[in-house]
């Protein structure tokens, strides 16, 4: 099952940290982790990536792997220059107050088509 980013935002109560960017991309898979090499090795175009990394490298990795969005878990906040860089390259950043395990648990149920 796929879900549009804007719907995902509603269901998971995510904050759009790059509000100038559209949330119309559809996602059907996700990955989670904080090791950039692992993400580079496994991410597929259109994935949503859940992480607590908020370094500029996150934007670089998201660009290289053409991710639909990055969800920053556990209320980590990127600095303004990271947000600016994300906007510049069209990378959607979403914020969640929940820990990665929680975000993944709910996201997995959604993408698998379970009841929300």
């Amino acid at each position: 099952m796929t879900i549009r980013l804007s719907d995902l935002c509603d269901v998971l109560e995510l904050e759009h940290l790059t509000p100038i960017l559209d949330l119309d991309r559809e996602v059907n898979t996700a990955l989670v982790g904080d090791l950039l090499s692992d993400v580079l090795a496994t991410a597929k175009p259109g994935d949503v990536w859940v992480t607590v990394q908020r370094h500029q490298n996150v934007v670089a990795v998201a660009r290289v792997t053409d991710l639909a969005a990055v969800i920053l878990a556990r209320d980590v906040r990127p600095t303004d220059d990271v947000i600016a860089l994300a906007v510049e390259h069209g990378i959607v950043l979403l914020g969640s107050t929940a820990p990665a395990f929680d975000v993944c648990g709910r996201l997995y149920a959604i993408l698998r088509g379970d009841a929300r």
Partner: peptide, 20 residues
């Protein structure tokens, strides 16, 4: 002292360090 700020080199980040 800013959350997330890190100067950890890339190799260290891949060992799980450098969360800032």
């Amino acid at each position: 002292m800013t959350p997330g700020y890190s100067t950890a080199p890339y190799w260290a980040a891949n060992l799980g360090f450098g969360a800032g």
